[in-house]
Simulated scan of single mutants.
Amino acid sequence: MNPAAAPAPTRVLLVEDDLRVARVNRDLLERDPDVHVVGSAATCAQADALARALTPDLILLDVHLPDGSGLGLLRHWRAQGLTTDVALITAADDEASVRLALAHGAFDYLIKPFTGARLNDLLARHRARHHAEAGRVDQGRLDQGRLDRLLGLGPTLPSLPRGIDPNTLERVAQALRDAPHPVSAEDIGEQVSLSRVTAWRYLEHLVRSGAAQLDHQYGQAGRPAKLYRRSDRPAGQPTDQP
């Protein structure tokens, strides 16, 4: 199988008035090679201009900004028809702010200080939603599986074993969902730029979690080949395999 084109990086706009915090968040984001911070804004006015000029995939937005509230800016964007994923990253931990953010269409809400793992989870779920949107067919209609992924309800693993990165796991799972027929670990590794052994480890994890199924191809000399396909079982239902 020929390697598929590498996925485009997730283009992120940071909106944070504390320059030190902005640098820390940028460093955290760009540890992921599939993330590119395309701009940084310190005010509502700058954020509004950059969001329109740069058309990022994801906006990480603070609430307390020198010239206004990030919540007001989010409301303005939604009223203007901007549907970009927006996640609040803020020290505002009161319930009213959280409810307003969600009511105005915030994709996620992180309370400072947050962990790198929680930020990785945000990125993985954004990618899952992005893949679901890119997979729309039939004049914009969605089947239930794509809709569930768009809503962040796809197969998720709340507690990942050591060595399983959520972003890489989502890339492997998406490649498997897109495969028209059962594929080998080598096939998946070529598609998502992983070694065969690493791809095999992620595929075996998906099998154990119920998100993939394992087939054996017999009839050849030596050991039977292992082929993987997306699971027909409900998401999150584990297999009986050890």
Rank of each mutant, 00 (worst) to 15 (best):
P113I: 02
V172Y: 11
I111F: 03
L151K: 08
L60P: 03
L147F: 13
A199P: 06
E204A: 12
A134D: 11
T10D: 05
L102T: 10
A53Q: 15
L150I: 01
L123V: 07
D27I: 11
L29M: 03
S40Y: 00
T55N: 09
L214A: 08
A42H: 03
V38Q: 06
G39E: 03
A117Y: 00
G210Q: 07
T90A: 00
P155L: 10
Q144T: 12
A103S: 14
G135Y: 10
G145R: 15
D178N: 14
T10P: 02
E30S: 02
Q237I: 11
D187F: 03
D187Q: 10
H181T: 09
L176Y: 11
P180Q: 06
D121S: 14
L194K: 05
V98W: 04
T43V: 06
A92S: 10
E204G: 01
R23S: 10
P180H: 11
A5L: 14
I89V: 15
R208Q: 14
D18R: 00
D178G: 08
A134K: 10
A132R: 03
H181G: 00
A132F: 04
A8W: 03
P234Y: 06
T10E: 10
P242V: 14
I164K: 08
R26T: 09
A225R: 15
T90P: 00
A185K: 09
P182F: 12
D17S: 01
L19S: 06
H76Y: 12
R149G: 00
S69F: 01
Q191V: 04
